[in-house]
Design a protein around this nucleic acid. Structure first.
Lengths: 226, 226
DNA sequence: ATAAATCTTCATTAAACATTAAAATTCCCT
DNA sequence: AGGGAATTTTAATGTTTAATGAAGATTTAT
């Protein structure tokens, strides 16, 4: 996701840039209207966020100019001018949305999501759990360690997921029995040992640093060794 | 320009309807969420304006349902709930814009212009979903693989559409039951297996690279094999 | 050294899924 | 409205895969 921010207040720029980069967006910044226009003409963006009051070309003229040149990226205007007429002028200049300063950052993010939803399947929303070099993707149900793919069965996957979600905490067998096998009573079985063994073979066996450790009499922990 | 207004307050409806009709728009009105959903499913609109607080299905659920069903008309939510979090929830439900009551009519009109600007003169972009050499045209409801036409029934089509829209993600049977068959409880049936089998026969059987894969205990994925 | 706890292997059992056919339902055409 | 084809669903059966429990090996704590 590439976003162009056109704004001359350094503080606002930093706030927006940082927040967007946390969401894995690439952010370009222009500090005046002309520079914004040139960047937008030369590159492809998924969204332009622009202030109205800018040195040189102002945000409204910028919108009109971009639209006149056939540039159709979504544009979000960001400004202190909050009367209804200001908004109307802004929207009719070719902007897609209009947010009045001061705004809450989370509202900005929501409006960005709404504007960019159509172009890409929303902002990167990958659903990944991690510990060390072990990664688990909950959407694709795939697991990898050090980039190497690991195939797990459904039970193995649930078990490992539980460990990753509670990494660093010692999990008793009773807790695993209840959470993964849905039994509260002790059935006198050794399934848990067997499954811990399965998972270890797949995630630890071929690697030097072991992640899944036994605490005799207490349970198991998933963590980096000390 | 066809617009669907979903709102149960007669006064608001009249205000909007009259204003829009003065601008030469065709306006349909639904007084509750279910009726809105049905109208939106059956007809093509350039814009949906919906209240959030509605009898039956509320506006947020309505947005989600419409989006889940692949309906992509712009949606503008119109509501008295004005906190930032309300707006975020609204926008993240799939709405394109959010206006807090009471609003000035001219702002509503400006936002409508902004939302519909794109669909008006815009050239009909073909509505095609793809994965590998498999293509699905949502307008003509036709499917082909490697250029060869494939005939699907309605259920088969919805199922495949859901898979293509979520390609790469493992979809559980529970999710399919809910999204394609509209049942939340387990009816102890095997329709899903049967339909996956139908779809496979049509899209995979005659081809070398299989696209629809089973992940035992987890669900099904549509993806290129590794 | 010994008992308890855990690990490992493997055959067995059970669950999940695939496939086919037939029944029920819907749709369509006269 | 009624009959027939197409679609959807249920049911029965076969196949594959994963989950389990038992038994012996190994490790750990005392």
């Amino acid at each position: 996701m590439r976003i162009l921010v056109i704004e001359d207040e350094i503080k606002t720029v930093q706030l927006i840039k940082q927040g967007l980069e946390e969401q894995q967006c690439e952010v370009d910044v222009a500090y005046d209207g002309l520079m914004g226009f040139q960047l937008a003409s030369r590159n492809h963006y998924n969204l332009i966020i622009s202030d109205i009051i800018l040195p040189g070309i102002n945000g409204l003229e910028l919108c009109k100019k971009l639209r006149a040149n056939g540039i159709s990226f979504p544009i979000l205007l960001l400004t202190a001018l909050g009367t209804t007429d200001d908004k109307i002028i802004g929207l009719d200049s070719g902007a897609d949305d209009y947010l009045v300063k001061p705004f809450e950052f989370k509202e900005l993010m929501a409006r960005i999501r709404a504007l960019t939803r159509r172009s890409i399947g929303a902002i990167q929303t990958a659903n990944v759990l991690k510990i060390a070099d072990l990664e688990m993707d909950l959407d694709t149900k795939s697991v990898s360690r050090a980039g190497k793919e690991i195939i797990l069965t459904a039970k193995e996957f649930s078990l490992l997921e539980y460990f990753i979600r509670h990494q660093g905490r010692v999990i008793s067998k009773a807790e695993l029995a209840e959470k993964i096998w849905d039994v509260t009573f002790d059935t006198g079985t050794n399934v848990i040992e067997v499954y811990v063994n399965f998972v270890r073979k797949k995630i630890d066996k071929d690697f030097d640093t072991k992640l899944l450790h036994t605490q005799i009499g207490m349970g198991y922990v998933l963590k980096m060794p000390n």
